[in-house]
Design a protein around this nucleic acid. Structure first.
Lengths: 209, 209
DNA sequence: CGAAAAGTTGACGTGGCGTCACGAATGACT
DNA sequence: AGTCATTCGTGACGCCACGTCAACTTTTCG
């Protein structure tokens, strides 16, 4: 019923296109999680769908591109939460703690996404900063610049401050996944304290970038 | 002459083994830097040597293993410098600033090593934490635990503190390579200030790990 | 010197890659 | 409803990288 409605609204062509694309992405998520990113081949992904090999290439150029689509899907879920948290913040402490807590909570709960990057032969990590992820970084930098302009944060290099927050977030997130004795809350408290104490001491700079 | 001496001392067998292994590593360094890690194939590396394809597999199982050997070579150069810097430190400020300065100096000067990870299709980063790299992390954590035991640093989670330093170091290093307006010294000053201000505020913890 | 051990070589079977000619499904138009 | 053009799924194909292995060459040792 709803399928028929959609078909009438969008046309059957559009319909199967969307469904094929999603089928590939869903299959890829499973296969990546099972074999690890490095070991997965395009063929593995195709086999996990009911499509022919040629069809894959109508939608994606390579497994890298599928992975990007996955990452973008994830980033699209997290980015608005982070943004909302920062906007809601009435002071810098809430800005920082809200960001870290939201991110770490997400990592703890959405194990699969991070597990993909982790389940790899040996100690190899793959990180792809997709457009959506980069946009998230830019957004954070812009918000930091705003905070600087408002005098909430001492004038310093916003780009480096952003990079530091990102670096700590990702690296601590790894330990969060590996250590069972570490809660998202404790990790967030740690990172927040580090930055709240740290920003006061940062070297002054005229304008950033 | 020196070759003959070495041959007599070590045996010709050992001699060519070492030379073959090094030839592969050297070729790999060039090829990785040229094509990027992801795009490089084992065959590309072999073609850059004068050896047959079968010979490669007498020395390495895959391109991953060659890359690990490269990483280990690099880590082996940096780790002692970092360690020395931390040992020489007479207080925690020197500990932190010495570490960051040494690391960032290395990244700025030894462009090739970091460039390999960077010259990749799109925005894909590959990071392999080899045994040597992990040993470096462990060493840093141990030194931090020592600093805590000596009361130079407030008692906190040494593992998280280590992760934070590593995260900031790597992420800022990326920006260091990309931004022409950023010197190793400025980056080190920034990171040092962040941590010197931050550690004072860190949440207390009984014993770490 | 001669035989055994160690190591090198490149051809080979396997399988993934991306393409493309074909045919089926769709939708536009009458 | 019927015709036609367009879009898209299909899978066989040529190409190349992979890792192996039997034959060959070099080194070692008695």
């Amino acid at each position: 019923m709803s399928i028929e409605l959609e078909a009438r609204a969008r046309g059957k062509r559009e319909e199967t296109k969307a469904s094929n694309r999603q089928a590939i992405i869903d299959a890829a998520r499973i296969v990546f999680a099972e074999l690890g990113y490095g070991a997965t081949t395009v063929r593995d992904i195709i086999r996990a769908t009911e499509l022919a090999s040629g069809t894959f290439y109508n939608y994606f150029k390579s497994k890298e591109e599928v992975f990007q689509a996955l990452q973008d899907e994830t980033a699209l879920r997290v980015r608005p939460r982070l943004r909302a948290e920062r906007i809601r913040a009435r002071n810098f402490e809430e800005f920082v703690s809200g960001s870290f807590r939201t991110f770490f909570d997400f990592v703890k709960n959405d194990h699969t996404t991070f597990a993909t990057m982790r389940r790899n032969p040996d100690m190899q990590r793959v990180r792809i900063d997709t457009p959506e992820v980069i946009a998230g970084f830019d957004e954070l930098r812009a918000d930091l610049e705003l905070a600087i302009a408002n005098g909430v944060v001492p004038a310093t290099d916003a780009d480096l401050l952003m990079a530091s927050m990102v670096g700590v977030a990702f690296e601590v997130a790894n330990h969060l996944v590996l250590r069972s004795d570490l809660s998202a809350e404790d990790a967030a408290k740690f990172a927040t304290a580090l930055f709240m104490g740290g920003v006061q001491a940062l070297p002054k700079k005229a304008a950033s970038r």
